[in-house]
């Protein structure tokens, strides 16, 4: 195995909440690796810590109320980002690691033209002159598939549609040819047909530029189509991690299993011969009060005493590949015969 591009180990990012209702353990012991050139999909529901994880990697967590706990490790090409000087960090941010944010409407500055915003990063990191940077911005707009880039470069964000703004965001992120692109729900705010355009674009750019992508989404369909490997998050932890094909063929964590069974899908025989959808009972817990033991146990159909008492570690699930390719945070792996739901 090659040296990973990014290694996150035991990342813990906590927030001290104002209401005095305690500490939100937003990210609580997350570990994963991203290899050069691959796409790692991170899926999970609202509030499970996806955005906080990606912000932690770039050390963009607002402090206070948040802080990354000592003991966490985030290594990029072997260097621990958590101990870097701010100056060294800035040289990496936006240059080697770039990020696109969830909200295309609010993450562009309304008072600058899109060209200026794309050029900015090139000027800062690569010391390009304004004129060269402008040419580069036009190239980026063309690369992300915006028609008439020479004209569009002088437009303001409000003159563009949501899909075009998201393209501009991608252009901004890619202008320095980063080695890692963190895409935080790049299509959630967009329509299906526009989403298809953006995903296609990301696929193409990744192939052309050879960068690694961390694709964050809550849509299992999106990861199935784009990711090489998938990490499923629940309640601030990674609960299952596997190559995409293995995860969808053999989901082992009861949460992954439930999630896959509960989304209506176009390719399955119509459930409307009015079968019920499978549904995961209960609700997503709050980050200030994760359940004890296995965090999924209150909603899990298999849970037994051990689940309530002890938090399971990430266990190796075997399968193809070397040990550790498919890991699952579930006690069922130690007692597979319990995989029959309670009545």
């Amino acid at each position: 195995m090659t040296e990973p591009l990014l290694r996150v180990r035991d990342l813990k990012t906590y927030f001290v909440t104002e209401q005095g209702s305690g500490t939100a353990r937003a990210v609580d012991g997350v570990s994963f690796e991203v290899q050069p050139g691959e796409t790692l999909g991170i899926v999970g529901e609202s509030g499970c810590g996806k955005t906080v994880t990606s912000l932690s990697i770039l050390r963009l967590i607002p402090e206070p109320p948040g802080h990354i706990r000592p003991g966490s490790v985030i290594e990029f090409e072997g260097r621990n980002l958590l101990t870097l000087e701010p100056r060294e960090l800035r040289a990496i941010r936006g240059n080697q690691i770039a990020m696109i944010f969830q909200e295309p409407m609010t993450s562009l500055n309304p008072v600058f033209t899109v060209g200026d915003q794309i050029a900015e990063a090139a000027i800062v990191h690569q010391g390009l002159s304004r004129r060269v940077a402008r040419t580069r911005a036009i190239d980026m707009l063309r690369l992300v598939g915006i028609a008439d880039p020479e004209e569009r470069v002088d437009h303001y964000p409000h003159q563009m549609s949501g899909g075009m703004r998201q393209r501009v965001m991608i252009g901004m992120a890619l202008v320095c040819h980063p080695k890692l692109l963190i895409a935080d729900e790049p299509t959630t705010a967009l329509d299906v047909t526009i989403q298809a355009q953006i995903l296609e674009l990301l696929d193409r750019l990744q192939a052309e530029l050879g960068m690694a992508v961390m694709l964050i989404t809550h849509d299992l369909g999106v990861v199935a189509g784009s990711a090489d490997r998938v990490a499923v998050m629940y309640a601030g932890q990674v609960v299952e991690q596997a190559p995409t094909a293995a995860l969808f063929a053999r989901p082992l964590h009861p949460y992954t299993e439930g999630l896959l069974a509960s989304v209506p899908r176009l390719d399955a025989p119509p459930a409307r011969e009015h079968g019920r959808l499978h549904s995961i009972p209960g609700q997503v817990p709050a980050a200030t009060a994760w359940p004890d033991g296995c965090r999924f146990h209150p909603r899990c159909p298999y849970a037994w005493e051990r689940c309530r008492a002890e938090m399971p570690p990430l266990l190796d699930a075997g399968g193809e590949g070397e040990p550790g390719t498919h890991t699952v945070r579930c006690w069922l792996l130690t007692e597979p015969r319990r995989r029959t739901p309670h009545p």
Partner: peptide
Amino acid sequence: LSAVPVPDPKAQRQRIVL
């Protein structure tokens, strides 16, 4: 219909990208 992502890596159909 073709743009809807399907949660199955084996069944990735040809997307019609508008």
